[in-house]
C-alpha cells in the first residue's frame, strides 16, 4: 500500500465512549502526516461482541451498517487490532453466501490497523519531545496472532528516542478480557487480568501502552482496583502527546 490521499477513520465503539481522546489523537496524527481524515458519523460498532458470542444474525445486522457507512475506496483506519481483525478476517466469513458478500470482502480488504498504517504504510518519523520514561507495552492477542501487527506497535514506540520499552513477564499471554468471556466466566477472567496487572506492576513502569483499548480497560481497571500506581494509555494518544511529525518519506 502506498500513502493514500485520504482515509476513513473507524473509531470503534469502545474508544467512542470510553476513550475518545485516543481516537482524536489517532486522527490528528494521520492528518498531520498530510492525509485527509474523514470520520463517517453513521459508524457504530464492528459487530464483534455479538459475533464472538455466537449471535451471527445480530452481528451481521450491525456489520451491515458499517458496510454502508464505510463504502468507498479509501483505506479504513481502525485504532484497535481486535476490531480491525473482526473486520479484516471475519467480515468475509460472516457475510459468506449473503448478498453482501462482495462488499464485505471489499471493506475487509481496505481495513488497516492504526499502528500498522503508521509503521508500514506511512513509515512515519516520530520526533520525541517528551522526557525520558520507561514504558511497558501490551500486545493484544489480535495484534499478536490474528493480524500480526504487534511488531508495528513496538517499532513505533522504538522510534521515540526518550522512551525505553519494558516487556512484562508472560507478555505473550492474553489479559483475560475476551469480550463476553469477562462477563460469562468472571472468575477466570479476573484471575488472568490479576496476573497480567501484577506482571506489569513488577516492571515498576509508570505507564502501560497498547494498541487495543479493550485490553487496557481490563488491565487498567484491575490495576487500579489492586492499587498499582501505573496508568494505562492508548498508543495513539501516547504517540500524539510525545511528538511532532518530521517530514514523512
Amino acid at each position: 500500500m502506498t500513502k493514500p490521499e485520504s482515509i476513513l477513520f473507524f473509531g470503534t465503539c469502545l474508544i467512542d465512549m470510553a476513550n475518545p481522546e485516543a481516537g482524536l489523537a489517532g486522527m490528528r496524527l494521520i492528518e498531520r502526516a498530510g492525509i485527509r481524515v474523514r470520520f463517517p458519523q453513521g459508524q457504530t460498532c464492528c459487530g464483534q461482541p455479538a459475533y464472538n458470542a455466537g449471535y451471527r444474525e445480530e452481528a451481521r445486522r450491525v456489520a451491515r451498517l458499517q458496510l454502508d457507512v464505510l463504502a468507498g475506496d479509501e483505506p479504513i483506519l481502525v485504532p484497535s487490532a481486535s476490531c480491525a481483525g473482526m473486520m479484516r478476517t471475519h467480515y468475509p466469513r460472516l457475510f459468506e453466501g449473503t448478498p453482501d458478500a462482495a462488499r464485505a470482502g471489499q471493506v475487509a480488504g481496505r481495513v488497516v490497523e492504526f499502528c500498522d498504517f503508521l509503521h508500514r504504510v506511512l513509515r512515519i518519523e516520530l520526533n520525541d519531545l517528551g522526557p525520558p520514561i520507561r514504558v511497558a507495552v501490551h500486545h493484544s492477542c489480535s495484534a499478536r496472532r490474528q493480524l500480526l501487527v504487534a511488531d508495528a506497535a513496538t517499532a513505533l514506540l522504538r522510534r521515540l528516542a526518550n522512551v525505553s520499552l519494558v516487556e512484562p513477564d508472560h507478555a505473550h499471554e492474553c489479559c483475560g478480557f475476551g469480550g463476553t468471556f469477562a462477563i460469562k466466566e468472571p472468575e477466570i477472567s479476573s484471575a488472568m487480568a490479576g496476573d497480567k496487572a501484577a506482571a506489569v506492576a513488577a516492571t515498576e513502569v509508570p505507564l502501560l501502552v497498547s494498541q487495543d483499548w479493550g485490553c487496557l480497560l481490563n488491565i487498567g481497571g484491575t490495576a487500579k482496583q489492586a492499587g498499582y500506581a501505573y496508568r494505562v494509555k492508548h498508543i495513539a494518544e501516547f504517540l500524539w502527546e510525545r511528538t511532532e511529525v518530521a517530514h514523512e518519506k
Binding site: G11, P20, G23, L24, M27, Q41, S190, G221, Q225
Partner: peptide, 20 residues
C-alpha cells in the same frame, strides 16, 4: 461481574462522534 475486581471504566463526557 466486571467491577468486582476492576475499577469502573471511565465514560467520556463527549463521544468521539461529537469530538470529531
Amino acid at each position: 461481574p466486571w467491577t468486582r475486581t476492576r475499577a469502573a471504566p471511565r465514560i467520556a463526557a463527549r463521544s468521539l462522534h461529537v469530538l470529531a
